[in-house]
């Protein structure tokens, strides 16, 4: 049960941070007419934050103590 609560708290913290990263004002820092890796910087930013978030969730949950 302890592990359960720990993971839950990590996930909640992660959700909070991600929500911040995906919203104004942080998002505005990447809202520029620039390209990176062959794609608009905003798109690259959103998709990488998204994927990182999913990856971290999977890591927290599936890692067995």
């Amino acid at each position: 049960m302890n592990r359960y609560r720990l993971i839950g708290q990590r996930l909640a913290a992660l959700a909070f941070i991600t929500a911040l990263l995906l919203n104004y004002p942080l998002i505005s820092l990447f809202n520029a007419d620039r390209m990176i890796l062959g794609a608009p910087v905003l798109h690259v930013y959103l998709f990488s934050v998204w994927l990182t978030f999913i990856g971290l969730m999977a890591f927290f949950i599936e890692r067995r103590e």
Binding site: G8, L11, I54
Partner: peptide
């Protein structure tokens, strides 16, 4: 993106 953030809160 909304559902993705929500998924983290499913735990609770």
């Amino acid at each position: 993106l909304g559902p993705t953030i929500m998924a983290a809160l499913w735990w609770f």
